[in-house]
Amino acid sequence: MSWSWEYLPSEELVAGGAPAAFLTAIEQKAIEQKATELVRVAEALHLDRTTHEGSGEPMRYLDVAGGLVAYYVVPRLELVVICQVTPPPA
């Protein structure tokens, strides 16, 4: 397996309703770059994911383009899950 990231439950439910310009900025730059960075960090912190015990890390928040992205890491699945995208105030 190799580390990756995804929206949960789906991109439409996580990011739906946010302004198109904000989502474009996030998807093209911020989320993919930040998620890739999160994946690298998670991979480094959990070199041997098979020895990980427990439910994983708590929910974390990342400031992206004036908005927030909520995510958590699932070491056993080698996965960073993005579960909420909050656009900046209008």
Rank of each mutant, 00 (worst) to 15 (best):
M1I: 03
S2H: 00
S2E: 05
W3I: 08
W3A: 04
S4I: 05
S4H: 10
W5H: 09
W5P: 01
W5C: 04
E6H: 00
E6C: 11
Y7P: 12
Y7L: 04
Y7D: 11
L8W: 12
L8D: 12
L8E: 08
L8Y: 12
L8F: 14
P9H: 10
P9W: 02
P9C: 04
E11G: 13
E11Q: 15
E12A: 14
E12Y: 01
L13V: 09
L13P: 14
L13D: 14
L13Q: 12
V14P: 11
A15N: 05
G16H: 12
G16L: 07
G16K: 00
G16W: 02
G17W: 03
G17T: 05
A18Y: 11
A18T: 10
A18R: 11
P19T: 07
A20P: 15
A20H: 14
A21S: 12
A21L: 13
L23H: 05
T24I: 00
T24Y: 08
A25T: 08
I26H: 11
I26R: 13
E27A: 05
Q28H: 10
K29T: 07
A30H: 15
A30N: 13
A30L: 11
E32A: 04
E32R: 11
E32H: 06
E32Y: 03
Q33P: 00
Q33C: 00
Q33W: 02
K34L: 01
K34E: 05
A35V: 00
T36L: 09
T36E: 13
T36N: 13
E37A: 11
E37C: 00
E37W: 09
E37G: 01
E37M: 03
E37H: 03
E37S: 02
L38A: 15
L38Y: 05
L38M: 08
V41P: 03
V41F: 04
V41T: 09
A42G: 13
A42Y: 05
A42N: 02
E43Y: 00
A44E: 12
L45C: 06
H46Q: 11
H46A: 07
R49M: 02
T51Q: 15
H52I: 11
E53L: 14
G54T: 03
G54I: 12
S55W: 06
G56R: 07
E57N: 15
E57A: 06
E57W: 04
P58K: 02
M59P: 01
Y61P: 00
L62M: 14
A65M: 07
A65G: 07
A65I: 10
G67Q: 01
L68I: 06
A70T: 06
A70K: 15
Y71A: 01
Y72N: 08
V73G: 05
V74E: 07
P75K: 02
P75C: 10
R76Y: 01
L77W: 03
L77H: 11
E78Q: 15
E78W: 04
L79A: 05
V80E: 02
V80F: 02
V80R: 07
V81D: 03
I82K: 08
I82P: 06
C83N: 15
C83V: 15
Q84W: 07
V85N: 01
P87F: 09
P88I: 02
P88K: 10
P88S: 01
P88H: 05
P89N: 05
P89T: 06
A90G: 00
A90N: 11
A90C: 10
